[in-house]
Amino acid sequence: MELLDNIAKNLEAGEDEKVLELTKAAIQQKLPPQDILDKGLIAGMNVVGERFKNHDIFLPEVLLAAKAMYAGMDELKPLLIEEGIPSIGKVVIGSVQGDLHDIGKNLVGIMLKGAGFEVIDLGSDVSPEKFIDTAEKEEAGVIGMSALLTTTMSVMKQVVELLDGRGLKGKVKIIVGGAPVSADFAKEIGADAYGFDGINAVEKIKGLCGVG
């Protein structure tokens, strides 16, 4: 449908005001909220993700698109809730204890919301207990941890061990990322996945949640 295509195209171009206007128009035309989300907003964001992966665009352009996505989502969210349309998954994210660097974690959160996930962002300097307690309380399927310092990476292992100790391993999946983190490190500590950037993290989390 042309209107939904227009939403997607304007989102790709990072035109947040236009996306908001078109989303309002789609709602007024009584288009199904799920279609506006899937065929408009998420469709546009998927193209942006592909272009980023192919190095056609860089992160600032992705973030402009994300802002446009949020503009549309803010308008659409009440309808999605009203119709009982669930998010595609719930993810708890945070920078590990001893680490205040949160730019990477913020980017992952933005991309996850853009992909339709519900995100509980615990901020930075998050203790292992807080990650696990929150995931348990919120019934989240995934914990995403970020670290920038080599000296704080060990906290990620503590979270994996604590999760195991609480009998939640397998039920709650763990993904790790951040400048000093690697796929080998993720495997070594028993994490379920490693994301090398925001877009990649979303793909991996979709895999962990069995989505798309």
């Binding site: 973030l63 994300a66 802002k67 730019i103 980017l107």
Partner: peptide, 14 residues
Amino acid sequence: LFGANDFALAYVLD
């Protein structure tokens, strides 16, 4: 800026 969804400017300023 992050709180106001102005992610791109926040990221570049960072």
